[in-house]
Simulated assay, not measured.
Amino acid sequence: MIRVIVLAALVSLACRWAFGKWPWDYLRPPRTQATELSRARSVLEVGVDADRRAILEAHRRVVARVHPDRGGTSEEVHRANEARDLLLSRLPEDGATQ
Rank of each mutant, 00 (worst) to 15 (best):
D49P: 01
V46C: 01
Q98C: 04
E57Q: 09
V11A: 07
A40T: 00
L56Y: 06
E57A: 05
D85T: 11
Y26K: 03
A8I: 13
R39H: 15
H59I: 01
C15A: 10
G95Y: 14
H59C: 08
W17M: 10
R60G: 15
Q98V: 00
V77L: 02
R52F: 05
R70G: 10
L87R: 00
V43T: 11
D51L: 03
R60P: 05
A40W: 03
V48S: 10
I5T: 14
G72L: 00
G95E: 15
R84I: 02
L13D: 09
D51T: 01
A80S: 05
V62E: 01
E36H: 09
W17H: 10
D85I: 05
P30K: 00
V63G: 00
V4S: 06
P23R: 00
G20D: 02
R53Y: 06
R70V: 13
S38Y: 13
L37F: 11
H59P: 03
R52Q: 15
A9G: 15
R52E: 14
G47Y: 03
A50Q: 06
A96I: 05
D94H: 12
I5N: 13
A18V: 12
M1V: 11
R28W: 14
V11K: 01
R79M: 09
R60W: 11
R65L: 08
A14Y: 07
A34C: 01
A96G: 04
K21S: 14
R41T: 00
R65P: 01
G71T: 05
R60H: 14
D69C: 08
A40M: 02
S38T: 00
L88F: 12
H78W: 12
D25A: 07
D85Y: 07
R16C: 14
P68C: 04
R70P: 00
D69I: 09
V11D: 08
P29I: 06
Q98L: 10
A96V: 09
G20N: 03
L91T: 04
A9M: 15
P30R: 02
R52Y: 07
R3N: 12
V11E: 04
P29C: 03
D69H: 12
G71K: 02
L91Y: 10
V4P: 02
R70Y: 13
R84L: 10
S89R: 00
